[in-house]
Simulated assay, not measured.
Amino acid sequence: MKRQGLLSATGILMLGLVMLMTLHEWDDTLPGQEDGILTAPAIVAKSITARAFSEEDGSLQYYLTAETLTQYDHNPLTEMQQPELEMANDKGSWTIV
């Protein structure tokens, strides 16, 4: 009986070791895919809505909507499809499409 328990424990340890080795290999990129990590987007969002309000009186400063938003780690710019920005101040309002 002790031998069966020892074999079971050894089998479980071997299975765990194989799983750890496999997971470690999955962290690495495939050959030729090094640039894919640099060009892949970090954030992709759909149906974006953003609002900013004035701290002084709580009035709406801007209202932004976009169909999609894409942000990359390697690029400080944010890409949007079909953005529409409505800005307001004490002199009037603007709509930028």
Rank of each mutant, 00 (worst) to 15 (best):
L69I: 07
K46T: 13
I37H: 10
L6H: 02
Q81L: 14
Y62K: 05
I37P: 00
N89C: 07
P31W: 04
Y63T: 01
M80C: 02
L23N: 07
L85I: 04
M87E: 07
I37T: 05
E84Q: 13
H74Y: 06
E67M: 08
L30H: 07
Q33R: 10
T10H: 15
R51Y: 08
I43T: 08
R3C: 15
A52F: 05
A42G: 06
D27T: 10
G92T: 03
M80A: 03
S59K: 13
G32L: 06
L85P: 00
P83F: 09
I43E: 06
E25H: 13
T95N: 12
W26Y: 14
E55R: 10
Q81C: 04
G36D: 06
W26I: 10
K91N: 12
L15M: 10
M1P: 00
I12W: 05
E84F: 05
V44T: 10
S47M: 11
D35G: 01
Y72F: 08
G58Q: 11
D28Y: 15
M14D: 03
I48R: 10
T70S: 03
Q71W: 00
E84H: 11
L13P: 02
L85N: 01
V44N: 09
T29P: 04
A50D: 09
A88I: 00
L60I: 06
A52I: 05
G58N: 09
L85V: 04
E86Q: 13
S47K: 14
E34P: 02
T78K: 04
Q82P: 00
E67R: 13
L6Y: 00
Q81K: 12
Q61E: 10
A52S: 09
T39W: 03
Y63F: 12
G11H: 03
M19V: 11
P31D: 07
P41C: 02
A88C: 06
L77K: 11
I37V: 12
L23K: 09
D57K: 03
I43C: 04
G58C: 08
L23E: 11
Q61V: 09
V18T: 12
L15Q: 09
G92V: 00
E84T: 13
P31H: 11
L77C: 06
K46D: 13
E79R: 07
L17F: 11
L85F: 02
Y62V: 06
